[in-house]
C-alpha cells in the first residue's frame, strides 16, 4: 500500500490548464522529490493532495484510501512559512497537533525538544517577526513534522537557507527520516538537493505540467555527503539538468 498514489490527475483554474494527467507514487517510507519549472503547478499538486482543491479529473489516495477533497491527512509545509504572527514559535510549531485535538500545553514540551534540534533553542518564546526567513522555514518545517502524519508534503522547505545551513538541514532531515521513516513528498528547484535526498525524482514539464520522467536514485542509505562526487551522481545531475532546460513548452 502506497503512502500516496496519484493517478491521471488533471487540474485547471478556469481555462488555465495547470496539471495534465499526472501520475506519481510515494511508497511507504519513501522519499520522493518533484523538480519542475516555476509556475508548472507543483504547489497546486500539493493543494490537491491536501484536499484544499478538488481536481478536474483523476484520483488521489493516501494510505490506500480515497483522499480527493479530504483534509487533515497530511503534514504540510507551505511554500511561504505562513506562521501566525501573534503566536510564539513553540505555539506555532504545535498548531497542527492542536487542530488534531491535542492540548497546546501538552505539545509544547515536544516542540521545545525539536526546536533545539533545528538550532532554534532559545527562540521558543519569540515571535515569528523576530526570526529570519530561514529560521521561519525551519519552524514551518517542524510544524509539518509534528503534525504526526504518515505522509509529509514539503514545498521548497529550504529555499531561503544559505548553502551551509542548507547542507546542515539536509543532513538533519535525512537523519530524522532514516530514524522515523515517514513518507515524504518534496518539491525543490535544486536538482542536487533532489538527488541527494530522494529515492526517486519526478521531473515536471512546463505548464500544463506532465511527468516528463521519473528517475530512480540508486545510492545507499544512509547517504554520505561525498555522494555528490560519485560519477553516477554527476551523470544523473547532468541528465536532469538537460531534461529541465530542454523541457518543451
Amino acid at each position: 500500500m502506497a503512502a500516496l498514489e496519484v493517478s491521471e490527475l488533471s487540474h485547471s483554474f478556469g481555462s488555465l490548464d495547470v496539471l495534465s494527467d499526472i501520475s506519481l507514487r510515494v511508497g511507504q517510507g519513501e522519499f520522493v522529490s518533484i523538480v519542475g519549472p516555476s509556475g508548472s503547478g507543483k504547489s497546486t499538486l500539493f493543494h490537491l493532495v491536501g484536499g484544499l482543491l478538488k481536481p478536474t479529473a483523476g484520483k488521489i489516495s493516501i494510505g490506500g484510501e480515497d483522499a480527493v477533497g479530504r483534509r487533515g491527512l497530511i503534514g504540510y509545509m507551505p511554500q511561504a512559512p505562513a506562521l501566525m504572527p501573534w503566536r510564539t514559535i513553540e505555539d506555532n510549531v504545535v498548531l497542527a497537533r492542536e487542530l488534531g485535538g491535542v492540548r497546546k500545553k501538552e505539545a509544547r514540551g515536544l516542540a521545545r525538544e525539536w526546536l533545539s534540534k533545528v538550532g532554534l533553542d532559545g527562540f521558543a518564546r519569540s515571535y515569528p517577526h523576530q526570526l529570519s526567513g530561514g529560521m521561519q522555514q525551519r519552524v514551518a518545517f517542524l510544524r509539518a513534522l509534528l503534525a504526526d502524519k504518515e505522509l509529509i508534503c514539503l514545498d521548497e522547505p529550504f529555499s531561503a537557507l544559505d548553502a551551509m545551513l542548507r547542507a546542515e538541514m539536509h543532513r538533519w532531515l535525512l537523519d530524522i527520516w532514516e530514524q522515523n521513516r515517514r513518507s515524504i513528498l518534496f518539491v525543490t528547484h535544486s536538482i542536487e538537493e533532489a538527488l541527494l535526498l530522494s529515492d526517486s525524482v519526478y521531473v515536471f514539464t512546463r505548464r500544463p505540467a506532465t511527468v516528463l520522467e521519473r528517475v530512480e536514485v540508486p545510492f545507499d542509505r544512509p547517504r554520505r555527503d561525498e555522494v555528490v562526487d560519485d560519477p553516477t551522481f554527476i551523470r544523473l545531475r547532468r541528465r536532469l539538468t538537460d531534461l529541465l532546460t530542454a523541457s518543451p513548452r
Binding site: 493543494h47 491536501g50 483534509r71 487533515g72 506562521l83 487542530l99
Partner: peptide
C-alpha cells in the same frame, strides 16, 4: 485573515470553529 495561513489551516484539517 492571511490567505496562506488560512490554506494551511484548511489542509491541516481545521474545522469552522477552529
Amino acid at each position: 485573515s492571511d490567505a496562506a495561513i488560512n490554506d494551511y489551516m484548511l489542509m491541516s484539517g481545521a474545522n469552522r470553529r477552529q
